[in-house]
Each structure stands twice: as C-alpha cells, then as structure tokens.
Amino acid sequence: MRRYSFSRKQLAIPYAVYLLCFVVAPLFVLMFYAFTNAAGQFTFKNLTMFFTDPNTLGTLFYSLGIAFVTTLCCLLLAYPTAYILAHSQLKNKSVMLMVFIMPMWINFSLRITALKEILSLLEGNLAYHPFLNAIIGMTYDFLPFMILPIYNTIVKLDPSLAEASRDLGANEFQSFLKITLPLSLPGIISGVAMVFLPAMTNYVVLDMLYNSTYIMGSLIGSYFAAYNWHGGSMIALILLAIICIFTIFTNGFGSQDENRGGVLL
C-alpha cells in the first residue's frame, strides 16, 4: 500500500470544486432557466420576447446610452487628473493618488445618499433631471475606478520617450498626442471596462436618485421581485453575452486584474 503523500497540487482541489459548484454550475442553471418556460418546456420565447418588446429594447438602448455617457464623463475627468498626478513633482505621489481613490472604500450607498442630498439642494426637485442625475451619480460612484488604471499606466511610462520626441522637434501637444496618449491606451481601456459594465447594471444609483427608468440591471430586479426566474435568467444571460463580447474586445489590450480596489497595500 502506497503511503499518502502531500503535494502542492492537491491544494487546488477545494477551490476548483468550489468554482465548479458556485461559478460554473449557476451559469448552466441560468442557461437552462432562460430557455425553458414555467412548465419546464424548452422555449425561445424569453429570447424573442426580449428582442421584440419595444420596452425591453428601449431599456437596452437606454442602459447603453447611460453607460456610454458615464464612461465618457469619467474619462474626461479622470484622464487629466491621472495625467497631472503622474507628472507632478510631488515627492509622495502615491499619497496624492490615495486622496483620489479613498472614496472607493466608503460604502457606495452612503456616498450616493450624500450626493443625493447635495443634488436636491441644488436642483430643488430631483425628478426634473433624471438622466443628468443618473450620469452624475454614476460618474461620482465610478470615477476612482477610471483614475486608478490610467494613473498606473502613465506613471510607468518611460519619460525619455516624450523627451526624445521633444528633441526631435515635436511641440508639447504633439508629443502628448503621439507618445503619451497612445501609450496610455491600455490604462484607458481597462478603465473603460471597469466603468462601462457596472454603469449598465447598477440600477440602485438610479433608484436612489429617483430616476425610475429601467436599465438592464433593473430588469433582473423586477423579474426577481415578480418571481419570474425564467425571464430574469434570460436578461442575465443577455448581460453575460454583452460582458463576454466586451471582455474579448478589451482583453487584447491589457489585463484588468489589479483595478477593482487594487490600491490596497
């Protein structure tokens, strides 16, 4: 009889089993539910209903719109900030970065509550500007996730490249446009991935700011509240497909491993 021998490979077993049970299996269940009806019969009805109902299609385009504008706002605010921080002469840049990232660790619902109070003071009634409020809320919520990857990319750039372009006759703007901006593209892409997808699904921000229009996430929430697991599964599956396409598209440019809360020491 062979004695039991320990090897490091075996340590992977619990996690592999866990992933199979609670990551892979739920996705298969989701697929099963999405393509069956309440009686358990196979059907495409959930899928065709989504793509023929003007309401759900409207929701899809509204969430794409919200996500697009939010991402753009985050980018316009985050890029200059990250650029200035990365190029500042300060001795302790990381501390400065920390100041911009810190809100990430305060519970998002409390931050949105704070924002809501300010916005109601400024606007009087939040219901007058639902789209604007949704954009402000999402930008407020996701801004750190855009600053962080862009800063990380810019700060690692070799300054001699920009210097070389200056020596070769480019002015400051040209050198930024042709050297710094293209080289910081991986940071921008992973920032976009960090912001775009949550902006399509985080319906709580809209709820809290009294924007009652549905986005993709709210659809799942409403099916869940109505005990319609089949309809909800189909929405989840469609979201998953969007996420897959998005991830395949962005993965070519760089990994986004270190971003979600990645400044931890």
Partner: peptide, 15 residues
C-alpha cells in the same frame, strides 16, 4: 471578476 454583480447574485440565488 468581470461579471456584473447582478448576474452573479441572481445566478447563485437561482441555483
């Protein structure tokens, strides 16, 4: 990591 939390939560609830 890349999945939306709504989808993760919903799929685990279903299973």
């Amino acid at each position: 990591v890349v999945n939306a939390d709504v989808v993760t939560g919903f799929s685990i609830c279903i299973l």
